[in-house]
Design a protein around this nucleic acid. Structure first.
Length: 918
RNA sequence: GCCUUGGUGGUGGAAUGGUAGACACGAGGGACUUAAAAUCCCUUGGGCAGCAAUGUCCGUGCGGGUUCGAGUCCCGCCCGAGGCACCA
């Protein structure tokens, strides 16, 4: 019997599928464990060898947990709404659903070949009406809720209405955007439309005007995390700032909880830090400045983290989009201001970021410093953002580099406030030093002055302490076809929306997938896109909508009554282990947490956080190969000799290269232009150059997992992807190392079969064989829990080398169980050959016997302060001199920590393993 | 600029403060073969000495420090990767 991996893998994959081996059921007799992969967007290109890295790791962990007695939920699905399918539909007229189905089928086929232990009965697709019904449902719940800052949770909107009716707008402390004030009497006298308009400022899913990232290239708006460096993440089109009315989610209301919740999560520090920065908490004060355009005066509120610097305010700055701009622009300045606003509007987001040129214009109005009474001019500049704080700032050029640059450019005064700070060349931004020129703050350090200043303004009714967050509400409308329709219709025209009460509201057919000629979204093309005769909303939801709660749906995927039943949620609770890329740090992973917290507030789910532990798998990069063509010829020179010629570097398909050696005949056949190619060889071979690059078609470095499965088998692929290095680390794929792990599997096979001869016997294992086995058991348990899968694979190789020639059932049975999470097909095959009727999946992980792994040791006395205090065990193999060195070291250590505090010391060859101190 | 990471042979990478380079690839040599594949064995960080077994010194980005002992801990640099970036 040879190791015929193709036959074996097909056989077991078919068996697992037919027997539903990995079907998860609620089973309260077992502890649950939920292992989740970030579900993929099924793109047309299919999977390359980098995609399954995380899936393999999670599969190994899932299989391991099952062996450890856990009831494991390990599902998979597809994030199936998205731009590429829609762009393709616009070009070809093909319905995106059709493209999606084809791509999904291909993904499934590719995944099946790798032998994953998913429970496919739980598959979800975000574009399936049975699934997006619950996306729409959650949206309506958000529409029907408000955020109570006092209780710090979301509550039904009816409770807000009741509060308004009894106490007016002052009766609540609610998260809102520009909500008007009114009394209870006024509320009661409001018409339905007026009430609806007011409530819109409080809803968690609300419609509101805000500055959005408008991407004309895609014909839609984008969320902040979908914009990278001023270009759309998908498609790379320039993005402009534009004011529009859009559906939004009040994520900002959850900023505090999203931030605090991070502490208890088992995520990497870097990822938590990214979220912290994205949420961006800063503590400061809001302060009121009197402003006047010469005829009328107003109270203008600004936010600052440096309340201590009020004495140094020499001007004020408004964001170009600020509502104050209109009020404070004086007639004489009107033309200049309009010209400035116009120039700002025309800039792309990219130019705005990249330019960093100092620009601005004077409004003509003045503000009064509330502490000094000084009159300072009010300017407009794009360096002030409308979305943050109040969209207006007090400028302290001496101690803020942006204000400084502005002051220099427009020749505004600079007043230093900190002793010894030299502000002639640059501002002094550090929060340290002693205050000067600052009235009652003089003599205090900055750290003392900030709270003192805040206390002062609070006492005098000038302002109050305030915590601000950078995170913005999520723009939730997309002017696209291939997404979830909003279950919203309009009776009286925007903005008086009403919820559709029959879900799902399914996506209508359209004749074309692009916007209408009038610039309306594609859904406006649908015939009869109405509800009860009223027009339906024509935008659709963004990509993150469907992925925000999919992990909950897996718990109970066929439930027609609820997103997830109480029982299923109580049992599975939340995701114990989530594996996926770090690119979702500020998108999906924030939105999901927000979505989950919202559902938690309303009592639909029992856990406040969705993902307990998160592992970010690294990217697998491509390893591109190059040939070097001598300029002006069709002659190619081997990499070692290329420096003697003037050459051009050309990507060559890596399938034509093995161990950096070029298949010259294959190369000639590759493209017609190379048919007559000549070569300058070194040692009779053409050696290619190489570089690590992103895996992509254009660099001819894509490796398809199917190819690896064909030539080496899925077990080899799984093992090799783990062997490449730590799961979290990015690393280049290099096929040349794969022979090593393949060889290892063949070695395992040969422990059972010598040709056709069955080798397994029932002899008793020797102590050293048992030791090798138990070393492996210990190592595997330790490494899997820390996701060091690469060292586990190494441990297997070491164990199999140590056990070479051993074909004892007593050793081989546990060995197969240990191997099964990594290389399940070969393990199952050999397990069956050993005469087992039941699949290895139902076996238990072998018990670990620590005693078997201890080395042979001798006992030596360790003394200090002139007395023998205790003894240590050192290996017999150590020389006298080594022993002396060690014992001396131990004496020093003992002296240092104090003898009484030593409870125990453990020493194995060459090192102190542990010093336990009281 | 700020935050987070990482820097170890020809390559991927091992190493709770305790024999640096496990394991694997590649390379070189050998065995078995008519031959190839497959398999197995030996060598493989660098320098010096030796016919040899072996001995000896130097080595984890750079410079300091703590320690009996530092790839690992502390301080200061340099370089790479990722994220954020007018957030007042």
């Amino acid at each position: 019997m040879d190791y015929d991996f193709l036959k074996i893998e097909q056989k077991w994959q078919a068996r697992w599928a037919a027997g539903k081996t990995f079907k998860a059921e609620t089973d309260t007799t077992k502890p649950k464990y939920y292992v989740l992969d970030m579900f993929p967007y099924p793109s047309g290109a299919g999977l390359h060898v980098g995609h399954p890295l995380g899936y393999i790791a999670s599969d190994i962990y899932s299989r391991y947990k099952r062996l450890k007695g856990f009831n494991v939920l390990h599902p998979m699905g597809y994030d199936a709404f998205g731009l590429p399918a829609e762009q393709y539909a616009i070009q070809t007229g093909q319905h995106p659903e059709k493209t999606t189905d084809i791509n999904v089928a291909r993904y499934r086929q590719q995944m099946d070949r790798i032998g994953f232990s998913y429970d496919w009965d739980r598959e979800v697709r975000t574009c399936d009406p049975g699934f997006y019904k619950w996306t729409q449902w959650a949206f309506l719940k958000m529409f029907d809720s408000w955020y109570d800052n006092a209780q710090d949770k979301a509550r039904p909107i009816s409770e807000l209405e009741a509060a308004f009716a009894s106490g007016g707008s002052a009766a609540v402390n609610a998260a809102s955007n520009d909500a008007p004030s009114f009394t209870a009497e006024q509320w009661r006298s409001f018409s339905d439309k007026e009430k609806s308009d007011v409530l819109m400022h409080y809803r968690i899913a609300y419609q509101g005007e805000s500055t959005v990232n408008w991407c004309p290239g895609l014909g839609t708006v984008l969320a902040n995390d979908e914009v990278k460096d001023g270009y759309s993440e998908r498609g790379g089109f320039p993005v402009f700032q534009k004011k529009m009315i859009q559906w939004q989610l009040r994520v900002s209301a959850y900023a505090g909880r999203l931030l605090d919740g991070l502490d208890a999560l088992d995520w990497t520090d870097s990822l938590k830090e990214m979220q912290r920065n994205w949420i961006g908490r800063s503590v400061g004060a809001e302060m009121v400045f009197k402003v006047s355009d010469g005829t009328e005066s107003y109270d203008m509120t600004i936010f600052t983290t440096r309340a201590d610097t009020v004495f140094g305010v020499t001007f004020m700055v408004l964001a170009p989009e600020s509502e104050w701009v209109e009020k404070l622009t004086t007639p004489s300045q009107k033309a200049a201001v309009d010209a400035y606003l116009d120039s700002v509007k025309k800039k792309t987001e990219r130019e705005r970021i990249a330019g960093k040129a100092v620009t601005g214009v004077f409004t003509g109005s003045y503000a009064t410093n509330p502490l000094t009474g000084a009159q300072v001019p009010v300017w407009i500049s794009e360096y002030v953002l409308s979305g943050y704080g109040t969209g207006a700032i007090m400028a302290v050029p001496a101690h803020d580099s942006r204000d400084y640059a502005f002051a220099k450019k427009f020749d505004l005064p600079i007043i230093p406030l900190i002793e010894g700070a030299d502000v002639s060349e640059e501002s002094f931004d550090a929060k340290e030093g002693i205050m000067i020129n600052s009235g009652f703050l003089n003599g205090l350090t900055v750290k003392e002055a900030i709270p003192a200043a805040i206390a002062y303004v609070e006492e005098h009714g000038i302002g109050h302490r305030k915590v601000n967050y950078r995170i913005r509400d999520a723009i939730f409308s997309r002017q696209r076809y291939w997404g979830e329709p909003f279950p919203i219709y309009y009776k009286d025209g925007i903005p008086t929306p009403y919820p559709v009460d029959k879900l799902p509201l399914t996506l209508p057919e359209v004749d074309e997938y692009k916007p209408t000629d009038a610039g309306e979204p594609p859904l406006a093309r649908a015939k009869d896109w109405t509800y009860d005769g009223y027009p339906l909303e024509t935008s659709t939801m963004p990509g993150f909508a469907g992925s925000s709660a999919y992990y909950l749906r897996y718990m109970d995927p066929h439930n027609g009554e609820a997103l997830v039943s109480r029982e299923a949620d109580d049992y599975w609770r939340n995701v114990d282990l989530y594996i996926g890329g770090t690119e979702h740090a500020t998108g999906h992973l924030i939105y999901s947490r927000f979505w989950n917290k919202f559902l938690y507030d309303l009592g639909y789910v029992c856990e406040d956080e969705p993902f307990r532990k998160l592992i970010n798998q690294g990217m697998i990069q491509g390893r591109s190969s190059f040939v070097y063509r001598i300029v002006g010829t069709n002659k190619f020179v081997s990499v070692g000799l290329k420096d003697s010629y003037e050459t051009t570097e050309i990507h060559v398909d890596i399938s034509l290269v093995r161990n950096d050696r070029l298949d010259i005949e294959g190369f000639r056949k590759w493209r017609p232009e190379f048919e007559t190619a000549e070569f300058v060889l070194e040692n009779g071979e053409y050696i290619c150059g190489w570089a690590v690059e992103k895996m992509s078609k254009s660099m001819y470095n894509v490796v398809n997992p199917d190819t690896i499965c064909d030539t080496y088998g899925a077990d080899t692929l799984r093992l090799y992807e783990m062997f490449l290095g730590p799961v979290e680390q990015s690393k280049p794929w290099d096929t040349k190392g794969i022979d090593g792990v393949h060889r290892f599997l063949r070695k395992v096979w040969r422990m059972f079969y010598d040709g056709d001869k069955w080798l397994v016997n029932d002899d008793k294992a020797t102590p050293s064989e048992l030791k090798a086995l138990h070393k492996l058991i210990g190592k595997e348990q330790e490494d899997i829990e820390t996701f060091s899968f690469n060292t586990t694979v190494s441990a297997f190789m070491i164990a199999v080398n140590e056990l070479s020639g051993c074909s004892k059932r007593e050793i081989l049975e546990p060995l197969l169980i240990l191997l099964s999470p990594f290389a399940p097909h070969i393990a199952e095959e050999l397990w069956e050959a050993l005469g087992h009727k039941q699949s290895i999946s139902f076996a238990s992980f072998p018990e670990f016997n620590a005693a078997l792994t201890v080395e042979d040791t001798c006992t030596y006395p360790v003394s200090f302060n002139g007395k023998t205090r205790f003894t240590v065990d050192l290996p017999k193999s150590m020389s006298r001199e080594e022993v002396e060195t060690h014992v001396r070291g131990l004496e020093q250590t003992a002296k240092w920590v104090g003898e009484q505090s030593i409870v125990k010391m453990i020493v194995v060859p060459g090192r102190i393993v542990n010093v336990v101190i009281k």
